[in-house]
Design a binder for these strands. Sequence first.
DNA 1: CAGCAGCGTTCGATATTGCCGAACGATCCA
DNA 2: TGGATCGTTCGGCAATATCGAACGCTGCTG
Lengths: 249, 249
Amino acid sequence: MGETIQSVERAAAILRLLASGPGRLGVAELARALGLPKGTLHGILRTLVHVGFVEQDGATGKYRLGATLLHLGSSYLDVNELRTRSINWADALAGRSRESAWIGTLHEGQVLVIHHVFRPDDSMQTLQVGTYLPPHASALGKVLLAHDPYGELPALPLRPHTKRTIVEPAALEAELDLVRTRGWAAETEELTEGEVAIAAPIKDSRGIVVGAIGIRGALERLAPDGPLHMEYVSYVRDAARAITRDLAR
Amino acid sequence: MGETIQSVERAAAILRLLASGPGRLGVAELARALGLPKGTLHGILRTLVHVGFVEQDGATGKYRLGATLLHLGSSYLDVNELRTRSINWADALAGRSRESAWIGTLHEGQVLVIHHVFRPDDSMQTLQVGTYLPPHASALGKVLLAHDPYGELPALPLRPHTKRTIVEPAALEAELDLVRTRGWAAETEELTEGEVAIAAPIKDSRGIVVGAIGIRGALERLAPDGPLHMEYVSYVRDAARAITRDLAR
DNA sequence: CAGCAGCGTTCGATATTGCCGAACGATCCA
DNA sequence: TGGATCGTTCGGCAATATCGAACGCTGCTG
């Protein structure tokens, strides 16, 4: 990797900082966080405001993310080939399983949700597109980790979300082995109490895993008598295979 | 407005260009579009790739938007106060009217959709958050234009979407007068054949219109016998008033 | 199969560009 | 009312990003 432009990199760091914490941040706070002079930051912020990436609160003078970013983010969804090619299959998967369907990709060591179909006949759910899921505590994440050529696993912080979250590196490694051999992943109450998820890998034309598709729903529906009902696994694997076939063309 | 940083502004221009057209763009295309040397653009692009705002196609070497932007865009939704405060009311509006509910803001002369609740019991709809609606051909847009202090109206291109779209500036001005006096806007088949929309203004604590909320649905449901059924107008106006009251606190 | 035109990328000289730190007024809190 | 902190301004300095030409490479085309 060659040289990069200082001011652009700093602008990106500001945007990431504004995105990480909720609410607004002031020039002084940003200056302390990045270790830069206030004046320098002010100049970058002025430019970011000018292009609409950042907005300034009229009263307090503090800064927050701008509306242009929302539009850029949704434009990314149109450009993302994996998503555009798999939307119809995700709809079908949600319809057949009567559960919410999800598509994710590995991005910066986390699972980025790039598509989300609500569970049929159940609105009042919040859309999760653009949010991150923990890779070690989600079915999508297990699939992606299991086939990740770069092996981001060792650097992962295995934060517990419920008492069933896998926090032992060895245990996770064994789980990923299982995912690799049988071709799909499950997650039972490892992220949220009472919720279960299933996922399978999506491959591109070269056979490399570029994403994962799965469903998520209540324990009592997907595994009412203990073990997962295998029909749901079939739905997910069928959808994954269909998309993989689609991408090969 | 004071001086702005050249490279950051150029980086933003690149992102906007990548977002406007679908698919990928090459260094040479961008250089021609922006009137800059190839070498300069390459440096900025290298930086944008490094921060994840842009991705490069391995085979062709062309550039497209990156996944980080999706996350930044969804972070904007969390930060946006208007949206977080009105989500519950939009859900209620969709439930009561049994139609899809929408919230929008004026941004760069267009209507930016910042929230969208699907019509109950009807999945298989594509989410429109982050997309733009034409202000002169949408109920949300009419509300926002009618109360826009900056008067972006004269600069608007009144592009026709159906044969009923308002394209005469004078006619639009009269329509906006109507919106102002009666406090809500309607749009009947001016954007899409067979679809009708209603919207009302959301005001902040100072009484300034900061957004609009409305519903959109099939003509045969919202106006089966010609004129709009006024119960739908009541639903929308109630929701708008409730959010306005909420923002005042 | 050769030629060419276009692509993305590299590189070093140039001076333009953006960085810095101190100083300013406004605001908030004690 | 005092002090501390905020966002903002400004000018000098040099680090910094820009520029244009040159380099391989790919993929057309004659």
